[in-house]
Design a protein around this nucleic acid. Structure first.
Lengths: 135, 135
DNA sequence: TTTGCTGCAAACCTTTTGCACCTAT
DNA sequence: ATAGGTGCAAAAGGTTTGCAGCAAA
């Protein structure tokens, strides 16, 4: 028996997407990443960017968040579980570490559920944007 | 001074959407709700369903969650803040009450953020689906 | 040589919008 | 009569997919 899938090939496009994603501080959309790749001179199809990004997200190498009607991606170097604090204005992101996730599991099992995943996302304004927007 | 917006009118369509939404145990998509309204004999435009659902969500009368690439809505009778435990297989939903949300605010301000909103969503399998899927 | 990957464009889907008409108030 | 609400169809996005050609292994 072999549960191995097809062998993955190494391509210029894969590298480019990964590298460009690594240069992003915060979450970027596929469209935006594609735009940056273009202006960086890497001619890569939008479809490929989507395919790569989805693959990265699925394998856990990238985090994703939905914001403004689009999926945002971010490289995830350490695969430890973490959550996000996201500025609604500029997109600045900080990873946060919930002090205790046990209660989630407890709550789940209290309702007869098994917990396979969960998300904690905090939205707000970062310091700079608070000033900028005069709030 | 009057911050009052335009006066809201009472219509057959508003009633129908609200009533149909009330009959849903769990989250439904706009499309699905529209489908149900149709088979219930209420001829209501899809656009109107979207407009109503969005209005309800904005006013806090409905919760929303994003699942499977679409926005899901659920009537929210008590407007207290709460979160969800969602079965990934059948969509069954349970409202959960986080024991302490103060740490979220603390974490936010520790990073210079103001917190405007947050989401906690727990995904897993409910008891029935665990058996059904033989997990 | 094989076959996974890519690019392109078309297809998809959900959601939003413009606008003329309808109808509570 | 006034103006908010509705329906329809078109438009708008973002994202996926079919397929022929390209290029790793």
């Amino acid at each position: 028996m072999s549960t191995n899938g097809p062998v993955s090939r190494h391509t210029r496009q894969k590298d480019a997407v990964l590298q460009q994603l690594r240069e992003c501080e915060d979450f970027v959309s596929a469209q935006e990443l594609h735009r940056r790749l273009e202006s960086a001179g890497s001619g890569i199809g939008l479809a490929t960017v989507y395919r790569r990004l989805n693959a990265l997200a699925q394998s856990g190498s990238a985090d994703t968040v939905r914001l403004d009607g689009q999926q945002m991606f971010r490289i995830c170097e350490d695969s430890r579980h973490h959550h996000h604090l996201i500025c609604e204005n500029c997109g600045k992101t900080v990873e946060i570490e919930p002090p205790d996730e046990d209660w989630l599991r407890k709550i789940a099992s209290a309702h007869g559920f098994t917990m396979s995943s969960h998300t904690v996302e905090v939205f707000g304004l970062c310091g700079e944007c608070q000033k900028k927007l005069g709030k």
